[in-house]
Write a protein that binds this DNA or RNA. Structure first.
Lengths: 106, 106
DNA sequence: ACATTACGAAACCAAATGGTTTCACATCAA
DNA sequence: TTGATGTGAAACCATTTGGTTTCGTAATGT
C-alpha cells in the first residue's frame, strides 16, 4: 500500500521561523535553491530540507528547470489555517464587544 | 534582567495537535488540570507541560483555586497569526481572480 | 572533452520535543 | 490528625528536528 500522506501539516510547517521567511521570500517570485539559500545564514542543504517540508505541506511547488530546482509559493493550504483561526476570532470579537459595552456604560 | 518576552511563540505553540485540542477544549470553559487531562490519552503531567507551553505563548491563562490550577483560553495572541495570514490572503485572492477572469474569457 | 555548477542523498550530530514515572508538597475532607 | 486529592518538579528516555559535511550525479559552459 502506498503511503498517501505522512505529509507535514501546515501548522507544523509554519512553526519554524526560517520556513516562514522562505514563504515570504517566495511570495514575490519563483527562485532556485541556490539563490534562495543566499538569503539565509545556513547551508544550502539545510535550506533545501526546509523547502521539502514546505513542499510536503503543499505550501510551495517545485519545478525542475535544467539543473535548477525552482520553488514558488503555493498559498492555498493556508486556507486551513484561516479556517481554524476563524473559530477563535469570535472569542476575541466577544471580548472586544464586552470592552466596548463597558466603556460606553461609563 | 527579567525576560519579558514569552518563551514560546504562537506559531510553535499551535504546531502540536494536542495543544490545538487543548485550546478547543478550553474555549468553552475554564477547567482544572485533572479534568482537562481526562480528555486525553496521555498522562496528566504531559498535559500539564502542554498547558505551560500554551501559557508561555499567552494562549491560556492560569488561575490557582485552592489546590487546583484552572486554565482558560486567551485568544488574543492569535491575532498575530491572523495578521501574518492576512499578508498571504491576497495571493490566493489573486489566484481566484485570475481563475475567474480565465473562466469568463471563455 | 573537461571543468564548473546545481542539487539531493546520506551519514552524522546536538538540542529540542513529547512522553513517562516518581516524589514532595499543599490543600481539602474525615 | 490523618488520609486523600491536585499539582508541579525532576530525572529520565526515545524520537524528531535543524543543522552540518561529504559525495555522486546530471546539466551547463568553455
Amino acid at each position: 500500500m502506498a503511503d498517501i500522506s505522512p505529509k507535514h501539516d501546515v501548522f507544523q510547517a509554519i512553526a519554524d521561523p526560517t520556513r516562514r521567511e522562505l514563504l515570504s521570500l517566495l511570495s514575490d517570485q519563483e527562485m532556485s535553491v541556490t539563490i534562495i539559500s543566499e538569503h539565509f545564514p545556513i547551508s544550502r542543504t539545510a535550506v533545501s530540507k526546509h523547502l521539502h517540508v514546505l513542499a510536503d505541506a503543499g505550501l510551495v511547488s517545485e519545478r525542475k528547470v535544467g539543473r535548477e530546482t525552482r520553488y514558488k509559493l503555493q498559498p492555498e493550504p493556508l486556507m486551513e489555517l484561516k479556517q481554524w483561526l476563524s473559530y477563535y476570532e469570535r472569542f476575541w470579537d466577544n471580548k472586544l464587544a464586552k470592552l466596548k459595552k463597558f466603556v460606553e456604560a461609563d
